[in-house]
């Protein structure tokens, strides 16, 4: 697609070459939207542009960013994963139980609860992928049903109770700050880099694009698509687990409701960032920008003092605008 466009820009001699190519514009449009939003909010309320406020935005965004990065891989494949609310809840609760059982402080063996939660996330993702691939159920339905199972499982484990994590060492994710930003922001940053590494530097990452770009072609070139899909869902599950850990770190409570609202927020963010739902385009940096757009709007509306109900509407309009701006109308004939 990209090569096709660049040839057309070369052949149309009428316009000077110096004009910014549409490709570049499309690539940077989400970032542009983010910067414009920040500029508008800063103009209306200078306090928006402060480290304190940015820390607030990033704290709120970190768990969602991890979940969104996980689902990015799936969306690049042209599939979708709606199981995140259940998976996040189960991982949060599993972490909390394991953590308290092993001593309740990071300074003891209880640190094992962290890899354990990621293992649980990976396992749920693996099952999700298997159901989707082996039973040939479209990912939308398979993952939606797995989400129910996850939320239900978390409910069974907790019996509806909340579990408090009061270990100061673990809560230092939120309380300990470096350069004004709490540790959880750096943890999220590290995992974002890991996601970027997987996306660009591993065979699996490249295979996601191969599957999303054209599954027929991927199969014909001998790619084991079923394996790539299952691995993709497993990987997404691990990222959901990281999101769960950060969510627990942020509020200090693990419960069935820990996973609430992650589904729409993360998918909105991925799409706003410019990763197309039909697959093959986008990546984790797009997702970072998308998540920031969503949370900057959320925060900016409060900072400039607009009533709560305006936020939803503005977010809705911006989501539509962002997708319209980032869609190349010439390359698609219709959308579903």
């Amino acid at each position: 697609m990209a090569t096709l466009q660049s040839t057309t820009t070369v052949t149309t001699r009428a316009r000077p070459r110096a004009a910014i190519s549409r490709d570049a514009l499309l690539k940077w449009a989400p970032l542009l939207v983010l910067l414009v939003l920040c500029a508008i909010f800063t103009l209306m309320e200078p306090r928006f542009l402060s480290i304190r406020n940015f820390a607030r935005i990033l704290i709120a965004a970190s768990p969602a960013l991890m979940v969104a990065v996980g689902v990015t891989f799936i969306i690049i494949m042209g599939s979708i994963d709606l199981s995140m609310e259940g998976t996040v809840s189960v991982c949060a609760v599993a972490f909390a139980f394991c953590f308290l059982w092993l001593g309740g402080t990071l300074a003891s063996w209880a640190w094992l609860a962290i890899p354990f939660a990621m293992l649980v996330g990976g396992l749920l993702g693996f099952v999700n992928g298997l159901i989707h691939v082996r039973l040939k159920i479209p990912s939308f339905m398979a993952s939606l049903a797995m989400g129910f199972v996850g939320t239900g499982l978390a409910m069974v484990m907790t019996g509806g109770d909340r579990i408090r994590i009061e270990d100061e060492l673990f809560r230092s994710l939120l309380t300990e700050r470096i350069l004004g930003f709490p540790l959880m922001v750096y943890v999220a940053g590290l995992f974002l880099l890991l996601g970027w590494f997987i996306q660009t530097r591993t065979t699996l990452g490249r295979n996601f694009y191969a599957v999303g770009g054209g599954e027929d072609l991927a199969v014909a070139s001998g790619l084991n698509v079923a394996r790539v899909r299952v691995l993709g869902y497993t990987l997404a599950g691990v990222f959901f687990a990281v999101g769960a850990l950060l969510a627990v770190g942020r509020i200090g409570i693990a419960e069935t409701a820990t996973g609430n609202n992650f589904m729409f927020i993360s998918i909105t963010a991925v799409v706003v960032g410019g990763t197309a739902l039909w697959g093959g385009i986008g990546g984790v940096w797009n997702t970072l920008v998308g998540v920031l757009i969503v949370f900057v709007i959320d925060n900016g509306m409060v900072v400039i003092g607009l009533p709560g109900y305006v936020q939803d509407g503005v977010l809705g309009i911006l989501v539509i605008l962002a997708v319209i701006l980032s869609t190349d109308r010439k390359s698609i004939s219709f959308v579903k």
């Binding site: 998918i267 909105t268 739902l277 939803d312 977010l315 989501v319 869609t327 959308v335 579903k336």
Partner: peptide, 24 residues
């Protein structure tokens, strides 16, 4: 159809707008 926004996103966003209206 006219703006080429996938219905998944378009309706999700219109939902936010409707919610805004309801809350107002």
């Amino acid at each position: 159809t006219r703006q080429f926004v996938p219905s998944f996103v378009a309706t999700l966003a219109m939902g936010f707008i409707a919610l805004s209206g309801a809350r107002f």
